[in-house]
Design a protein around this nucleic acid. Structure first.
Lengths: 230, 230
DNA sequence: AGTAAATGTGACACAATTGTGACAAGACAC
DNA sequence: GTGTCTTGTCACAATTGTGTCACATTTACT
């Protein structure tokens, strides 16, 4: 699951947060000051950072800037923590590019909520490389399908086919359309490769294979399992 | 010793700073406006730039951006000077990527302190020349890779390739992109040199070679751990 | 039921991609 | 010059992906 780096100089608070996050299944890293934070972040790149603005030595701003300057860490979402809802800090934090902002004292519940929110919407993926629908999560970058937790490798063609099906939002795609979109066949070539690939896809989908439905005489469609339809 | 470029339109202030810096043993360059600043910076690349935000002609922001856009100067740390601690300027300065920020009037002592600070942290490890991730530590200056303690010599090309892979943060880099970024090939040259270099890199990585993963039909990616993350 | 058409399936051949070792040209130091 | 190092290319090997085929199964229709 996601790894979260907690940067705060107060031990109590750090531990409190750690405890709460661990209970929810997150991995946690802790740092008491900016230097430690940078070190840990470089060692194991976290998925999200909780950053206290009041730090000894290097203050939170500097750490923030450093994180945003490094290629390795600049895309990690950051939630700022601060002692009180001082307006100026709030402004500074957000305009610097922090992804959210929580004022101490805060309830663990509130913090968790925000973390979930942010992780869900970012998961540190560049926009548009992830398609999520139901239990399916397609990573266009790696040609990997995450299905109910498991990672499934797809070949380029399989991937393309699945994407086209999924992106047509529950509508049936005609055989010819699929052949055109996935294979670039423009003539009505007599080929069975589509059938074969559908079969291979279903094989890899395992229990979820029924979500590719064949519409006899027309083509295929992807059904998103009753719920999250579109 | 270090050379510092001072950009300010007020002669008095420029001279005051120059005096103080010289006394500390720094070399100084002066510029009264943005144009001069760019010229001087190109002539003798300074180790640090003090940049006033209020300039005639081109304002400080433009100069800043120009400096950051040029290959020659983009890594030089910049300390912004400004007439007052106006909040909005502070924000702009920091979010543009200035390394520090001093408000006029300032005491020479304060300025010197900040200069020392920044020079110290940027010169011991000139901006971003060390990349650390997992067991990998790359020293851009020496083209050396420290892997779990052992020092491994890499050639220039191997090094560049590894850096590009690592810096893309777990994302797959397409073959063409790698060829463009590492070799500067812009045409779709038919070459196998990428494959060869990947092989050589993996050879040198030994037990860690699996961290360079091939994504068939696309390119390669660096994975920072056993698991498929991001 | 019986039949024809459409689709599913497994095996196979070959296509395409990537890995690998050898080699030669160039760069560079000595 | 010689020797070492680096780099790109090549031929070939290994691996993986893809399309076709024959045959099985399902479906729509009479």
């Amino acid at each position: 699951m996601a790894t979260i780096l907690i940067v705060d100089d107060e031990n109590d608070i750090r531990e409190l947060i750690t405890l709460n996050l661990r209970r929810e299944g997150y991995d946690t890293l802790e740092a008491a000051d900016g230097l430690q934070a940078m070190k840990k972040a470089r060692k194991k790149i976290p998925d999200l950072i909780l950053l206290d603005l009041m730090l000894p030595e290097k203050d939170g701003y500097s750490v923030f800037r450093e994180l945003k300057e490094s290629n390795l860490t600049q895309n990690i979402p950051i939630i700022m923590l601060t002692a009180r809802g001082k307006l100026d800090e709030r402004i500074t934090g957000l305009s610097l590019g922090a992804d959210d902002y929580v004022t101490k004292p805060f309830s663990p519940k509130e913090l968790l909520l925000r973390i979930k929110n942010i992780l869900h919407r970012t998961q540190s993926h560049p926009a548009g490389t992830i398609i999520e629908i139901g239990d399916f999560r397609l990573d266009k970058n790696h040609l990997v399908l995450h299905l109910a937790g498991a990672a499934i490798d797809l070949t380029a063609t399989e991937f393309k086919l699945l994407v086209v099906l999924i992106e047509s939002g529950g509508h049936t795609q005609a055989r010819e359309d699929l052949l055109r979109q996935v294979w670039g066949y423009n003539d009505l070539t007599q080929t069975r490769t589509l059938d074969t690939h559908i079969k291979r896809l279903r094989e890899k989908l395992g229990d979820f294979s029924h979500q590719i439905e064949t519409v006899r005489g027309v083509g295929y469609r992807f059904i998103s399992d009753g719920k999250a339809s579109s």
